[in-house]
Computed example of a mutant assay.
Amino acid sequence: MANSNGSKAAARDKRQRLTAAAAEVLHRQGVERTTIADIAQLADVPVGNVYYYFKTKDDLVRAALSAHADHLSLKLAHLDRDPDPRARLGALVASWVERRDITARYGCPTGTLAVELDKREPDGIDTEVGQLFRTLVDWVAEQFRRLGQPDPHDLAITFVAANQGMSLLSNALRDPTIMIREGERLRRWLDDLPT
């Protein structure tokens, strides 16, 4: 039995390493430029073994999206520990600004995937990345609702769009200071909202 459990744990570990590697490589290189060999190399898994866990590159893209969804879920759960919705939103902005160097180099992981996947033939993956944005927008809207703001969904769209805009410009201009300046502007906007 221990042998069987050990091999299951090893298989889970390989799958997790491949998923994490897919998320990282796809963020850095994009879907079209990434090969299964790139992902296998970063995960330290022989290329031939990848097909045991993921039959196609699209399966790896879906796994990367799942990793992004898990990361978002953990981040939002962590933010939810703070009882103050305004502080939660401010902490979310701070987390975006904290990743400014990575964003300036590679863009927003979810945003860049959304743009790239939208240019392909519709295959369902494009709608899966949209679900990540829906989750984020819904969470942000709930914070604005708790703050008693009118039109919380509209405010959430503005808030998330501001992040996507500052991420895009920071990446296009390779300027991480854009994230700092625009993040501060977002925090001031939050502070100025009436209570």
Results as ranks from 00 to 15, higher is better:
187 R>C: 15
63 A>T: 08
90 G>C: 04
86 R>Q: 08
178 I>Y: 05
25 V>S: 13
6 G>I: 03
185 R>Y: 08
122 P>E: 06
96 W>A: 07
85 P>R: 00
192 D>S: 05
136 L>C: 03
50 V>S: 07
114 A>Y: 04
138 D>I: 04
40 A>P: 09
131 Q>T: 12
26 L>A: 01
124 G>W: 03
146 R>P: 04
45 V>T: 13
170 S>N: 05
158 T>D: 14
25 V>I: 14
153 H>M: 10
157 I>L: 02
24 E>R: 13
190 L>A: 10
148 G>D: 12
38 D>Y: 05
122 P>N: 02
165 G>P: 00
156 A>T: 06
97 V>M: 00
92 L>Y: 15
102 I>Y: 12
54 F>K: 05
67 A>P: 06
32 E>F: 01
7 S>R: 15
106 Y>D: 14
154 D>H: 04
170 S>A: 10
91 A>T: 02
77 A>P: 00
51 Y>I: 03
95 S>T: 09
185 R>P: 10
109 P>H: 09
112 T>H: 01
111 G>E: 03
138 D>A: 14
61 V>A: 05
43 A>I: 06
22 A>S: 11
179 M>A: 11
140 V>M: 01
135 T>P: 05
105 R>A: 13
1 M>C: 09
132 L>W: 07
54 F>H: 02
171 N>I: 03
49 N>K: 05
181 R>E: 15
125 I>C: 00
152 P>W: 10
119 K>Y: 01
145 R>G: 12
104 A>N: 01
152 P>F: 14
48 G>L: 05
154 D>I: 03
67 A>R: 08
82 D>C: 00
4 S>G: 07
78 H>L: 04
162 A>I: 06
144 F>I: 04
61 V>C: 01
121 E>R: 13
119 K>T: 05
195 T>S: 01
40 A>D: 11
45 V>H: 11
41 Q>M: 04
142 E>A: 13
26 L>R: 08
43 A>R: 12
85 P>V: 04
137 V>L: 00
160 V>L: 12
77 A>F: 02
107 G>M: 02
9 A>W: 02
137 V>Y: 09
